[in-house]
Write a protein that binds this DNA or RNA. Structure first.
Length: 481
RNA sequence: CGGGGUGUGGCGCAGACUGGUAGCGCGCAGCGUUUGGGACGCUGAAGUCGGAGGUUCAAGUCCUCUCACCCCGACCA
C-alpha cells in the first residue's frame, strides 16, 4: 500500500499537512486561508477547551460573549492597536443591501468592544476586579496560512480582566501565564518556556506581553499562548475608570490572554511521528481502541462477546473507549489506522486471548513489540489500562522535554549563533542586551527571532552574545512559526 | 505583493513534444474467499480534461486570454 504520510525527516511541513489530512483533523475550505475542522479535530479542541475552561473557573473567571462585529471607530481609539491590526482587518461595509454609515470590523480580538462595556460596568473599586473570558472565533486577514497554526479565521478564548492597581493586573497576567503553562505541560504534555516578549514582538497596545513557547519536532518555536498586561492603555482609550476609597477617579489596569486552535497544531507537531499522530491521553478523543481478531465464524461471536465486556469495563472506569468492530477491515489495517490517528492505547483481543481470559495491550508512545504487553488478565485489564494511560501521558512529556533540551544550546557569540542555527537549529539561549534594531538585523540575517526573555534566568550575569555588554537578561532565539 | 509550480472520475497521477473514440493506481458499490501488523479475486458505478475564445474535417493535446489553487520569500495567536 502506498505511503500516505511523508516522513518527518524528508519534509516536516509536508508531513504536518499529511497527518492533518489523514487523521481527519481538518481540511482546506473553499475559502482560501480558512479550514474546516472535522469531528476528530474538533473533539481534540474540545479537550483543550475543557482543560482550560476548568482552570479559568478555578481561578475565578466567568464566561461571557461579546459580538462578532466591532464599530470601526473602536479599533481606532488605541493608537498602537490600530497600527498593529489595520493591515489584517476584515471590514463589513454593506448590510441589508445598503452601505453602512460606519463600517463594522470583524473582530481580530475583542479588547476594544469589551473595554467599551467595562467602562459602563465599572464605577467603583467595589466593582473590581472584573474577570471575564470568552470563547469565540476571530478573523485576521493572513497572507500565508497553515492549518491550525495560522488561518484567517480561528477559534480561541480571550480572557479580559480589569483591576484597581498595576500590581493586581500584573499578578493576573502572570497567574494566567502559569495557568497556560500548567495546561500545556500537564494536559497537552508539551514542555513550554515561560517568558516575556521583546518590545518588537509584543501585542499591539500592551505594556508587556508574556508567552509560553514550545519547540516543535523540527526545532522551530511556536508561541502556544500569550498573556498581556495592558496597563491603562485601553482604560484611557475607553474611559474605564473607577472611584477609589478616597473618592478619586482612577484608570483601571487591564489584562488580556489567549490560547487558540493553534494549540492543536502544537500537539501534532510536538508529539507526532512518521506513523502519524500521538495524542496525550488527557486530551485524546479516543483513549483506548479495542481491535477484535478472529479467523473462523465460531471464533467471531466469542471474541466479540469479550471485546464488548472489556469495552463496558473500560467505559465504566471512565475511559474514552472505542470498539472497532468493522468487518471489512483486517486487524493489521486497523492497527495502522488507529496509530495514525494517535490513539494512546490499543487493546487486541483474539481467540488465544479468549482462551486464556487475557488481552494484549499496545501503547502508541513506544514502537512495535517494545510497546506491547501480552497476557494481561481480563479481570485486571481496566486497572492496567488506567496505569498505562498515565504512563503514556508521562512518557510523551518526557520525550518532548528530552528533545527540546537536546536541541537547546547556549551560545556566546554571533558566529557561534549562526553556526549552531545552521547546523542544528533548535533554541538558542543567549545573554541579551541588544536593541529592537539588533533583533531586526538578526532576523534578517538568520531568520531567527527573539522568542522570549526568560522570567527568572538561572544563569546570572553574563556578556551579551551580540554586543558584549554585561547583562543578566537571558533570551531564547529560534526560527518560529 | 515578488519568484516557482499545478489544474484530467472522490484522491494521486499518465496522456500533451508528434491533434484521430479519455487511461492507470488507490478509494467507492455488489458478490465470494479472507482476518494475530496496511488481504485477494470477479463484476460494476463514476470524468462538461479549471473557464472563455480561436485554429482545424477533428483539440485533453496547438494559439490567445482568463480564473483558481499549491509551494518559496516580506507581516502575524
Amino acid at each position: 500500500m502506498a505511503e500516505k504520510i511523508t516522513p518527518r525527516s524528508e519534509d516536516f511541513s509536508r508531513w504536518y499537512l499529511d497527518v492533518i489530512r489523514e487523521a481527519e483533523l481538518a481540511e482546506n475550505s473553499p475559502v482560501r486561508g480558512c479550514m474546516v475542522i472535522r469531528p476528530y479535530g474538533y473533539e481534540l479542541w474540545e479537550g483543550v477547551k475543557a482543560g482550560l475552561d476548568r482552570r479559568f473557573k478555578e481561578t475565578g473567571h466567568k464566561n461571557a460573549y461579546f459580538p462578532l462585529f466591532i464599530p470601526m471607530s473602536f479599533i481606532q481609539k488605541e493608537n498602537e492597536h490600530v497600527e498593529g491590526f489595520s493591515p489584517e482587518l476584515a471590514i463589513v461595509t454593506i448590510g441589508g443591501g445598503k452601505e453602512l454609515e460606519e463600517p463594522l470590523v470583524v473582530r481580530p480580538t475583542s479588547e476594544t468592544i469589551i473595554g467599551h462595556m467595562y467602562s459602563r460596568w465599572i464605577q467603583s473599586y467595589r466593582d473590581l476586579p472584573v474577570l471575564i473570558n470568552q470563547w469565540a472565533n476571530v478573523v485576521r486577514w493572513e497572507l500565508r496560512t497553515r492549518p491550525f497554526l495560522r488561518t484567517m479565521e480561528f477559534l480561541w478564548q480571550e480572557g479580559h480582566t480589569a483591576h484597581a492597581t498595576a500590581e493586581e493586573a500584573m499578578e493576573e497576567t502572570l497567574r494566567m501565564l502559569d495557568v497556560y503553562a500548567d495546561f500545556a505541560i500537564n494536559d497537552a504534555a508539551i514542555p513550554v518556556i515561560k517568558g516575556r516578549k521583546s518590545e518588537r514582538e509584543k501585542f499591539a497596545g500592551a505594556v508587556a506581553s508574556y508567552t509560553i513557547e514550545a519547540m516543535m519536532g523540527n526545532g522551530w518555536a511556536l508561541q502556544a499562548g500569550t498573556s498581556h498586561y495592558l496597563g491603562t492603555n485601553f482604560a484611557r482609550a475607553f474611559e474605564i475608570t473607577y472611584l477609589d476609597r478616597n473618592n478619586e477617579l482612577q484608570y483601571c489596569h487591564t489584562t488580556s490572554w489567549g490560547v487558540s486552535t493553534r494549540m492543536v497544531g502544537a500537539i501534532v507537531m510536538v508529539h507526532g511521528d512518521d506513523q502519524g499522530l500521538r495524542l496525550p491521553p488527557v486530551l485524546a478523543p479516543i483513549q483506548v481502541v479495542i481491535v477484535p481478531i478472529w479467523r473462523k465464524e465460531a471464533e467471531r461471536s466469542q471474541v466479540l462477546e469479550v471485546t464488548q465486556q472489556v469495552k463496558t469495563a473500560l467505559a465504566d472506569a471512565g475511559i474514552r473507549v472505542h470498539l472497532d468492530d468493522r468487518e471489512e477491515q483486517t486487524p493489521g489495517f486497523k492497527f495502522n489506522d488507529w496509530e495514525m490517528r494517535g490513539v494512546p492505547l490499543r487493546v487486541e483481543i483474539g481467540p488465544r486471548d479468549v482462551k486464556q481470559q487475557s488481552v494484549v495491550l499496545a501503547r502508541r508512545d513506544k514502537p512495535g513489540k517494545e510497546g506491547k504487553e501480552f497476557g494481561v488478565p481480563l479481570t485486571g485489564a481496566a486497572t492496567r489500562v488506567k496505569e498505562l494511560l498515565r504512563e503514556v501521558q508521562k512518557s510523551l512529556l518526557e520525550q518532548a522535554t528530552a528533545f527540546r533540551d537536546a536541541h537547546t544550546h547556549y551560545v556566546r557569540s554571533y558566529e557561534e549563533f549562526k553556526e549552531v542555527l545552521n547546523e542544528e537549529g533548535g533554541f538558542l539561549r543567549v545573554h541579551w542586551a541588544g536593541t529592537s534594531e539588533d533583533e531586526a538585523r538578526i532576523q534578517e540575517e538568520t531568520k531567527a527571532t527573539l522568542r522570549c526573555l526568560l522570567l527568572e534566568p538561572p544563569e546570572g550575569e553574563g556578556e551579551c552574545f551580540l554586543t558584549g555588554k554585561k547583562t543578566d537578561q537571558v533570551a531564547i532565539f529560534a526560527r518560529a512559526y
